[in-house]
C-alpha cells in the first residue's frame, strides 16, 4: 500500500524541495557570515599586527596601509611586513616558559576538574528523577554572579588571614596560616572552581543517557559492580569526558583573570604575558604574535576534538 502511494507522493515532494534549497543555503550562510565577521576578520587584523614593527606612535605599530599612494602604497606596506616578532618569541625564554607553564597548568587543572566532576555528575545521574533538576540548577547557579566577583571572593577565602586559614587555625589543624594565595595552587583552585560546570554538564548528559539495564546485564554475566563501572559506565561516558576536558582545557590555556588575581607574580601563564606585553609594554605586534601562536597551539586539540566528534556522529549514522 505504501509502495503504491510512494510514486504519487514524490513529485510534489520534489517540487517543494526547490524553494526549500535556497532557504537551506540561507540557513548555512547566516552562521558563516557571523563567523567571518566576528572571528575571521579580527583574526586577520591580529595576524597583520603580528608581522608589523613596534613604534611609539598612534597606532603603536607600522606600516599602516596607505591607499592614497595607490599601488606603490600597497607594495611598500607589503614589503615592510616581516616575521621578526615571531623569532623574538623564540629567542626570549620567557615566552616559551609561559606557553609550557600554561599547558601544564591547563592540563593539571583539567584532570583535577575531571576527578571532581565525574563523581558529581555520576551522583546527579543516579539521583531520583524528581531532584535532578534541582541538582542541575545548583551546578549552574554560580553563573548568576560574575566570574570576577567569584574570583575576588576566593582571595577572601585563601588569604593568609582569610576564611580558610581562620577556620583551620580555629579547628587546630594548623598552627601557622597556609600561604596559598599567590601560588600555583591558588590558580588550580580558581580554575577548577570556575570551570567545574563546563565539565559536569557534558558528563551528566552522557551519564544520564546510560541505560541501567546494561549494568544489570554486566552483573548478570558475572561482572561485579566496580568492574562494570570501568567496563561499561566509563567507556560509554567517554564522549562526555572528552567534551568536558576540551571545554575546560582550551579556555584554561589562555586564562588571564584567575592567574592574575590569584596566582601573583610567580605564576607564569601565557594570558598574563600577553596582557603585560599589550598594556604594560604597549608592544602590540609582539602580543599579537603571542596570540597567533596561542591560537596555533590550541588548533591541535580543537582539531582532535572535532575529529572525534565527527567520527562519533558517523558511527551512529
Amino acid at each position: 500500500m505504501t509502495d503504491a502511494a510512494a510514486p504519487d507522493a514524490s513529485p510534489p515532494a520534489r517540487a517543494a524541495a526547490a524553494p526549500g534549497r535556497w532557504k537551506r543555503w540561507l540557513l548555512i550562510a547566516i552562521p558563516y557570515c557571523w563567523l567571518l565577521a566576528l572571528f575571521l576578520a579580527p583574526f586577520f587584523i591580529v595576524l597583520k599586527i603580528s608581522v608589523s614593527d613596534t613604534v611609539i606612535a598612534q597606532p603603536p605599530y607600522e606600516p599602516v596601509l596607505d591607499l592614497s599612494q595607490g599601488w606603490q602604497g600597497i607594495k611598500d606596506w607589503w614589503s615592510a611586513l616581516d616575521l621578526e616578532n615571531y623569532s623574538a618569541l623564540f629567542d626570549d625564554e620567557l615566552y616559551l616558559a609561559s606557553y609550557l607553564s600554561s599547558l601544564k597548568i591547563a592540563t593539571i587543572s583539567t584532570l583535577l576538574t575531571l576527578a571532581i566532576a565525574y563523581p558529581m555528575a555520576y551522583g546527579m545521574a543516579r539521583a531520583p528523577k524528581s531532584i535532578r533538576p534541582t541538582l542541575l540548577m545548583a551546578v549552574i547557579l554560580p553563573f548568576w554572579t560574575s566570574l570576577l566577583i567569584r574570583v575576588y571572593a576566593w582571595i577572601g577565602i585563601l588569604n593568609p588571614d582569610g576564611l580558610l586559614n581562620a577556620f583551620l587555625l580555629w579547628a587546630r589543624v594548623i598552627n601557622e596560616p597556609l600561604y596559598i594565595m599567590n601560588t600555583e595552587t591558588a590558580v588550580y583552585i580558581g580554575i577548577v572552581y570556575s570551570y567545574l560546570p563546563f565539565m559536569v554538564l557534558p558528563l551528566y548528559a552522557s551519564l544520564e543517557k546510560l541505560d541501567e539495564t546494561l549494568l544489570e546485564a554486566a552483573a548478570d554475566l558475572g561482572c561485579p559492580p566496580w568492574k562494570a563501572f570501568w567496563k561499561i559506565t566509563v567507556p560509554l561516558s567517554l564522549p562526555g569526558v572528552i567534551a568536558g576536558c576540551f571545554l575546560v582545557f582550551i579556555p584554561a590555556v589562555g586564562e588571564f583573570v584567575i592567574p592574575d588575581l590569584l596566582g601573583g607574580s610567580e605564576t607564569l601563564m601565557i594570558g598574563k604575558t600577553l596582557y603585560n606585553e599589550f598594556f604594560l609594554n604597549r608592544d602590540w605586534p609582539v602580543s599579537s604574535a603571542i596570540a597567533v601562536l596561542l591560537l596555533l597551539v590550541l588548533v591541535v586539540p580543537i582539531a582532535i576534538y572535532n575529529n572525534i566528534q565527527a567520527r562519533e556522529i558517523g558511527d551512529k549514522a
Partner: peptide
C-alpha cells in the same frame, strides 16, 4: 548478588 548466581538472563 546477581554476579554470583549461576543463572543468565536474556533481557
Amino acid at each position: 548478588p546477581p554476579y554470583r548466581r549461576p543463572v543468565n538472563m536474556m533481557f
